[in-house]
């Protein structure tokens, strides 16, 4: 099963990549880990005329702490994030999510930026990005802009990144409060039927809860967050709040899980994620 033919180039800088992206209009695609794009190309669902291989733009691969933010380059692989010491100490939730993705080989190759921009509704990262209130730095030819995670995911396979823009960094305020990610995997693909990331902000007496896999667009479970605002986290308060985990959304249904079951998993996994986060 081969892809349609295409041209390939490896821009040396971000600016060059942005220039090429603009020059080729909609015909060019960025190639990072390739774990979403290449399978789609093999099915010829995607037939870009030009691939811009940006995997060697080392500037987009760094993981570092900067100005109270943990900054993850968009090209950092899941494996790199899972194993990174700064991540482990400043925002272990990110490491937990990274380690839950796919399998060893996929984590070695797949990138956080590629996953986020692909915006598969069953991807793991969006839950963490939302629950951590991350900001995303997006570069265009003329400007760089910051986008709040909450404004980033627009629809299935659609984000606020324009075709001539490149996601550069994911910035997470640190130290992040204790968090946890609880995922029910689709048995065949390993993607999330339901993944819930929860973060406890003890100072603010607030929690942040985000859910992926359940709706067309990953979402913050605001009903859960409001129900727990200012309250102690006990088994009872958590269980009561978790009932709102799939309120106000339209759950997806398919052969792997009905809408009803996905909504139920949102409640179950929200409960577990909050319990675990609270215990950390």
């Amino acid at each position: 099963m081969s892809t349609a033919p295409f041209n390939y180039t490896r821009p040396k800088t971000l600016d060059e990549a942005l220039a090429l992206l603009t020059a080729h209009g909609g015909n060019a695609k960025l190639l990072a880990g390739g774990h979403s794009l290449i399978p789609a190309m093999k099915l010829r669902l995607a037939q870009p005329k030009m691939l811009l291989d940006i995997t060697r733009l080392e500037a987009l691969r760094r993981i570092e702490e900067r100005d109270g933010r943990l900054v993850i380059g968009a090209l950092a692989t899941h494996a790199e994030i899972a194993a990174n010491r700064t991540v482990a100490s400043r925002c272990p939730l990110l490491a937990e999510v990274a380690a839950s993705i796919g399998d060893l080989q996929v984590r070695n190759r797949g990138t956080i930026g590629g996953s986020i921009v692909h915006a598969d509704p069953a991807a793991d990262w969006p839950a963490a990005i939302l629950a951590l209130d991350a900001e995303l730095e997006i570069a265009g030819r003329m400007r760089r802009r910051m986008e709040a995670a909450g404004d980033f995911f627009m629809d299935i396979f659609e984000t606020s990144v324009e075709p001539d823009e490149i996601l550069c960094e994911i910035r997470v305020p640190v130290p992040a409060g204790p968090g946890a990610y609880v995922k029910t995997a689709q048995k065949a693909s390993g993607f999330a039927l339901c993944g819930v990331a929860a973060v406890v902000d003890a100072k603010a007496r607030r929690v942040r809860v985000a859910v992926t896999g359940v709706a067309a667009v990953p979402y913050r479970a605001t009903g859960v967050e409001e129900a727990l605002a200012g309250k102690p986290l006990t088994a009872e308060t958590i269980a009561a709040a978790a009932r709102h985990a799939a309120a106000d959304i339209t759950p997806l249904g398919d052969i792997h899980a009905s809408a009803e079951y996905r909504a139920h998993l949102a409640e179950v996994n929200t409960t577990l994620a909050l319990q675990r986060a609270a215990a950390r």
Binding site: I38, D53, Q105
Partner: peptide, 18 residues
Amino acid sequence: TVLIDGQAVKSCTIFAVQ
């Protein structure tokens, strides 16, 4: 699965040029 620079990867999802 093969190793690239010691890391296990799925060679069906990488172009040779990469």
